[in-house]
């Protein structure tokens, strides 16, 4: 059960092909598998369908795959931070499927858990429900949404071991745990690769069964989209 790979190229070897579907973790630029995304960029794989809450920003994260026109379709909940995205979408080069954020999260969770479809009240009476089954439970309407799976999931975690067990950090967790479960193959990049047995089993967020390959990316550059601070007042008072 050798899951540890030493390079990004090695971690993605034999997994990438044109036209495939890839899930990519993160919320905004927080918790994105940046090294693996850059590996996908270098591979040149094209016509990709990418499932990710957001689409990166120009030059960072999934924004890089947009720049190289490797993306055919995005399934996302919010893409407002990416100018290139707007251009490609408006010119018809890029397909887009919007999902409400909670519906997207649940579709991925369901996909990974072997649940083909579920009912939710999110989007009832809106264009999101167009063409979908609506069914009443206890006098309330719910719309049917389907589970999502991907050919490949790429995720980012704070800590991991050779077994594939993962621990996320703060709000960098977001979509990563569900995506890890919903990829036919899941590759994780971790900031700290620790000896098996050193993570308290009670503290593991993603059990290793969901992770096929793991790569150590020490001290990655992390990006902040909206740096907001408060002034230090009367510190010496």
């Amino acid at each position: 059960m050798r899951k540890t790979r030493s390079t990004v190229a090695d971690a993605l070897e034999g997994l990438l092909r044109d036209g495939m579907t890839i899930m990519s973790g993160g919320f905004g630029l927080c918790g994105i598998p940046e090294a693996l995304i850059e590996g996908i960029e270098r591979s040149g794989a094209r016509d990709l369908t990418i499932i990710s809450n957001n689409a990166g920003v120009d030059g960072i994260g999934l924004g890089r795959l947009l720049a190289t026109k490797q993306v055919k379709k995005m399934i996302s909940s919010y893409v407002g931070e990416n100018k290139l995205f707007a251009e490609q979408f408006l010119s018809g080069e890029l397909e887009l499927e919007f999902n409400p954020q909670g519906t997207l999260a649940e579709r991925i969770r369901a996909g990974g858990a072997g649940i083909p479809a579920f009912y939710t009240k999110t989007g009832v009476g809106t264009i999101i429900a167009d063409g979908k089954e609506v069914r009443s439970f206890n006098g309330e309407d719910y719309v049917m949404e389907t589970g999502l799976v991907a050919d490949l999931s790429v995720v980012h975690a704070y800590k991991g071991d050779a077994e594939g067990n993962l621990v996320y950090r703060k709000t960098a967790r977001n979509f990563n745990p569900m995506m890890a479960t919903a990829g036919k193959v899941t590759v994780a990049e971790v900031e700290h690769l620790v000896p098996t047995g050193s993570i308290d089993p009670d503290q593991i967020h993603t059990p290793g069964i969901f992770v096929d390959r793991i790569i150590h990316v020490p001290a990655p550059t992390k990006h902040i989209e909206q740096r907001t601070v408060r002034p230090r007042i009367e510190e010496n008072a």
Binding site: F27, G28, L29, C30, G31, N53, E81, Q101, G102, L104, A105, E106, I108, R109, Y158, Y168, R169, K170, T171, A172, R173, N174, F175, N176, P177, M178, K222, H223, I224, E225, Q226, R227, T228, V229
Partner: peptide, 24 residues
Amino acid sequence: DADLINAGKQTITTLPETSFFSSA
């Protein structure tokens, strides 16, 4: 902390009662 943001992607802080969880 780049790993600690709100839904508007702004940097924020924790409190003693804070918990973190997945999007699901």
